[in-house]
Design a binder for these strands. Sequence first.
DNA 1: TCCTCTCCTTGCTT
DNA 2: AAAGCAAGGAGAG
Length: 301
Amino acid sequence: MSTARPEACPVHHRLPVTGPIDLEITFTCGQAFRWERRADAWSGVVGGAEIAVRLGDPSVLLVEIAGEDPGREALVGYFRLGEDPLNHLDHAQELRNLPGLLPLFGLRLLRQDPWEALSSFICSAAANVRKISGCVEGMAARWGDPIAGSSRRRYPAAERLARVRESDLRALGMGFRAPYLKQTARAVASRGWSWDELREAPYERARERLCGLPGVGPKIADCTLLFGLDRLEAYPVDRWIRRATMELASRRKAKDEELSRWAARFGPGRGYLQQLIFHLRRTGGPLPSLARLNARAKRTA
DNA sequence: TCCTCTCCTTGCTT
DNA sequence: AAAGCAAGGAGAG
């Protein structure tokens, strides 16, 4: 149902937004790696489209499309425009008192393509955001199909990356991640792999499946579940979330799995909250202990 | 089986 | 200039 339009007549959408929205945080928080700041908007690639987005008057997302229009509903889903992110606090009232967290709820957790999320986060091992973007954008430039009316390219499918040379991945700066990415691309492109099956599977089962892929451990499995498979109960524990969660839990040392279990108290939307905590910890310094914080809040109430 | 340590690439920072 | 650091994972011991 997607139609390619000529460049001279780009498609526009005006999409009303439920709840707060902050494009800067959304695109720079480390969940996605193909969003670029332009003079007047942000440019990203979603499916077969380049989309430029900016905010309009009272909480409207203005979208300009080049290439295959995903359609209004797909875009509303991609940005979760019909959901108020603050709802995720319903099961985590204790976090309301966390200084600096409330202003971050304009972060929209994007519903990304699972293969793009998986492969991007394989690139993320021991890398920083700039490095990851370079790898991801490099792969798209080299192997992605062109988008009509745009200089940007689609993200290459697993089938395509399964056929590239490892040396070409290394040339893009992939380093030791190159063989992981290629082998995982092969596995995902094979007949034995089904994203639909993963969507149906219980969280633990899906996580085990992903961990069976080369170069994929618990952290990247959880990122794939959270960012690519809409599993908001996934709580990826990286070095920042490890520190942040230990601080909140008043723990000196703890295993990642313990921290995941501890974070279950934040409810079914804890993955969404994780992304806010991640951003807060990276930009705002150490976090207070939740126990002390809530004791103080109770006294002053 | 579980824990800890080291290595693996690269490029930018101190 | 050498070392540290960056959304980790795999293999050894």
